[in-house]
């Protein structure tokens, strides 16, 4: 069954027919070709599919696309200011080796962004809690935590 949905993704509005069986992650990847949103487990455990829905991070593999009609979404593609520009959190991940294979990275970066929005100066422990919904099979998390600490410093300094 198809359902027409209107959504805003990264500031752009779309009106599309979504298959009602499509989860939001599939819709973003297959219909809008925004393949930065990854699918790891598909069942809510890994956080690779994290996107921002009306200002809060959610796991887009557990939400039906048809169920977000009229809502606003930000994906990893939408957080920097321009095509050649990285968001300060992304820059810190690159410089401090917050990624290896990169599969978890879009979700990690969005979770970090949510955390720093609510808590601009988090402790190491708070960072670890903030990204506890995101699994990484490569880094052992240590460099991810370092990257987020550095990003926090830079974002604070730029204010």
């Amino acid at each position: 069954m198809k359902k027409t949905i209107q959504i805003t993704v990264n500031g752009k509005s779309y009106s599309r027919d979504a298959d009602t069986r499509q989860v939001l992650a599939d819709f973003l990847r297959d219909e809008l070709r925004l393949t930065g949103t990854h699918i790891g487990c598909g069942t809510g455990s890994c956080g690779a599919c994290t996107v921002v829905l009306d200002g809060r991070t959610v796991k887009s593999c557990c939400i039906l696309a048809a169920d977000v009609d009229g809502q606003e979404i930000t994906t990893i593609e939408g957080i920097s200011t321009g095509a050649q520009q990285l968001h300060p959190i992304q820059e810190a991940f690159v410089e401090f080796q917050g990624l290896q294979c990169g599969y978890c990275t879009p979700g990690m970066v969005l979770s970090a962004m949510q955390l720093l929005k609510e808590n601009p100066n988090p402790s190491e422990d708070e960072i670890r809690h903030g990204i506890s919904g995101n699994l990484c099979r490569c880094t052992g998390y240590h460099f991810i935590v370092k990257s987020i600490q550095e990003a926090a410093k830079r974002l604070q300094a730029s204010k």
């Binding site: 069942t43 809510g44 557990c62 939400i63 039906l64 048809a66 169920d67």
Partner: peptide, 24 residues
Amino acid sequence: LIAGGMSLVPMMTLGLAHPDAVIS
């Protein structure tokens, strides 16, 4: 009925729940 979908959608994805209709 679907609320957050955090339990229902994974169950549907895994084929453990197969409703004829989903009401949000």
